[in-house]
């Protein structure tokens, strides 16, 4: 099988890898770059557990080929904290118990961060629809939605 050489920026670092054209960006992140924070819950873009941003745009990494990442800038959950300082969403998710099993958490955090960057003052409905592609089976979403709304309020106050 012929593999293709790809250069991309992941969480601020330049990375190079060889991949089979059939491999998804999620496969590459997990299996070639050892970034296992993004999860495969469905492989069909229906659960959002593999959410990352590519050139600032929120996407499912299971719906992008690894070879498509050439020249792109990718951010995953591993790039959310600044050293030992957690992103406010990460802190609030722990504080509010906005996670139970935690498998959906990386995707939801990446998606929520992307929302707050576009819309620092979302309504509950806006948060719910923005996160509709991130399935959580444990929480009933209640504490997740509250954590996102309250983080947004905190961040507005701080800025």
């Amino acid at each position: 099988m012929k593999t293709i050489h790809v250069t991309a920026t992941v969480n601020g670092d330049t990375v190079e890898y060889l991949c089979d054209p059939r491999e998804t960006l999620l496969d590459v992140l997990r299996d070639r770059l050892n970034l296992t924070g993004a999860k495969e819950g469905c492989g069909t873009g229906d659960c959002g557990a593999c959410s990352v941003t590519v050139d600032g745009r929120l996407v499912c990494s299971c719906l992008i080929l690894g070879v498509e990442a050439e020249g792109k800038t990718i951010t995953t959950v591993e790039g959310m904290a600044d050293g030992e300082t957690l992103h406010p969403l990460q802190k609030k998710f722990i504080e509010y118990a906005a996670l139970q099993c935690g498998i959906c958490t990386p995707g939801i955090l990446v998606a929520a961060k992307s929302l707050l960057e576009k819309n620092p003052d979302p309504t509950e409905t806006e948060v719910r629809y923005w996160l509709a592609g991130n399935l959580c089976r444990c929480t009933g979403y209640d504490k997740i939605i509250r954590a996102v709304l309250d983080t947004a309020a905190d961040m507005r106050e701080a800025s």
Binding site: D46, V54, L58, V59, L63, I64, G133
Partner: peptide
């Protein structure tokens, strides 16, 4: 069509 993530593509 699809989620916010799908809309990105």
């Amino acid at each position: 069509i699809g989620s916010t993530q799908v809309q990105g593509r």
